[in-house]
Design a protein around this nucleic acid. Structure first.
Lengths: 205, 205
DNA sequence: CTGCCGCTACCTATGCATAGATAGGTGTCA
DNA sequence: TGACACCTATCTATGCATAGGTAGCGGCAG
């Protein structure tokens, strides 16, 4: 669909980073994936750091869109939180990890603006979850066992880590196809498990 | 302390991987950190993959030792779980992430045995936590909100993700010293938050 | 309508640094 | 003497990046 080469480059680069890591993907890989020469990539993104930055900007924008979408539908706070978790479930289904999680591992080798972008993304997620929790409690929709702020941080951490666990075992994805057997390896559906534990935290009290 | 060069190499390599990622650290970096030439590294570890594998083997062995230590002290299951979480708190305090979490990001570029070692480590952690929970419930020590298996996966995921969050914001660690200001950045003490949320899951019911 | 201008989006060719790895030599201690 | 632990020197492959060239398009002056 994206006849736009720059967009295609971002798409492929994101996939490569999420599967191979920022430092392990090369312009050669990316060029091959897109069907142009490595030098042409520099036309669109002067340096690798520019590509990374553009990628995080787009990723963050997509998060904002998704959160706005969820909030706009204006359902219960619980439903919103479930929808948020659903975003991670989709990522898990694609056998991917969060772009942030992947970049965070190579943190020290990344340019400062990129490091900041990663932190922003995670902070934004955490704040949004915390706000949903606070609102849900205020409206008497549910009670949170323990502190809301702890639960928010814990959920985001659990989701990020969940993606790592899911891909670490299972994973597989031998380049296969779109079928997706569903249950691959022992650690399938980690995000579901995280969701259930998180929800168990809410109804009590 | 470790006059043993091989051990020193493993130590430094582990630090490098945990801060820069597997593919972003080079033999040159490692040689500089240890004080020998790059070629000498090959004497101890013929290829980079051998080093990675030895590292994971040692890391897994350390986990087994730590778990055995915890179990051997034979306290309550709750105390054991807290001690387990304490391992991650120590890692967070050092500004590091779990070796597995770091390696998992570069997964596709790693040799198969190393991929397997990562999965083993995480599975082992999860199984141990699940066993503690089951035993605690059996002994009437506590009740678990939701399913024990979910809580176990959720805790391991939360701890792994927690380390990522902690380092993503805050982090800092400008190579400084051993003081450790304690509160660095907004997301300090994420592991504590995960612990509190996890414990909130236990007392209820 | 034609012919040139300049832009976009790519190309080939090349540069320089670094990657991991190897061969073979050196010093030291049992 | 010989094994161990390290060295120097060197190799090939690959990394990201640059320089400079060109095909194809739209606009517009004559």
């Amino acid at each position: 669909m994206p006849a736009d080469t720059a967009t295609l480059l971002l798409d492929r680069a994101q996939t490569l980073i999420q599967t191979r890591g920022y430092n392990a993907f090369s312009y050669k890989d990316l060029a091959a994936a897109v069907g142009i020469r490595t030098a042409s990539i520099h036309y669109h993104f002067p340096a690798k750091a520019d590509l990374g930055l553009a990628l995080m900007a787009r990723y963050h924008a997509a998060l904002e869109d998704a959160l706005a979408e969820i909030d706009h539908r204006g359902r219960s706070q619980l439903a919103r939180l479930k929808a948020f978790i659903g975003l991670y479930r989709d990522t898990e289904a694609r056998g991917a990890v969060c772009l942030c999680g992947s970049l965070a591992s190579d943190r020290e080798t990344l340019p400062a603006p990129l490091q900041a972008a990663i932190a922003d993304y995670l902070t934004r997620s955490e704040r949004w979850v915390a706000a949903r929790l606070a609102e849900g409690v205020r409206a008497g929709e549910f009670a949170v066992a323990g502190r809301s702020a702890d639960a928010a941080a814990s959920l985001v951490a659990g989701l990020q880590g969940g993606l790592i666990l899911a891909r670490a075992h299972g994973a597989g994805a031998h380049g296969a196809g779109a079928q997706g057997t569903g249950a691959r390896g022992t650690g399938a559906h980690v995000v579901d498990r995280v969701q259930r534990s998180f929800l168990a935290l809410l109804h009590s009290a």
